[in-house]
């Protein structure tokens, strides 16, 4: 699971109001290089919750992202390359996603998060 997808996931437990972002527990991570596409990144920058991405990438051992973004940064290839790496190349392979409100853990196995709820959580 890439951090792009982590950025799109919230805790879906009934009654949870602050379900984003899910905290990361990393047991195993893998890095897979993918093609660099600046246009895609510029587009995604508008859709990503930046703070959540910064925290998630730190949990994955990558601390190169700036705390905040500024519009001028999209012109910097250096910035885009870091964003690219954090967003698309770091994969959470084994671990869990933790609901920030309840502490409930959603397991991630073989890179796939399981968001299915128990009967009493729906």
């Amino acid at each position: 699971m890439r951090l792009l997808t982590h950025n799109m996931l919230s805790s879906n437990i009934k009654g949870v109001t602050n379900g984003f972002p899910l905290a990361l527990e990393v047991t195993k991570l893998v890095t897979k290089p993918v093609d660099f596409n600046p246009d895609f990144l510029k587009n995604m920058l508008l859709k990503v919750e930046w703070k959540a991405l910064v925290e998630a990438s730190r949990a994955m051992g990558y601390a190169e992202l700036p705390e905040q973004t500024e519009p001028s940064m999209v012109e910097s290839e250096e910035f885009l390359r870091k964003f690219h790496h954090a967003l698309l190349e770091l994969h959470l392979e084994e671990g869990s996603l933790v609901c920030p409100q309840t502490g409930r853990k959603f397991p991630v196995c073989k890179g796939i998060p399981n968001m299915l709820l128990h009967e009493d959580e729906v």
Partner: peptide, 13 residues
Amino acid sequence: LVITDVASGLDKR
């Protein structure tokens, strides 16, 4: 890929 019911957990973001 995400194991979930329809798009539960993804629908907000």
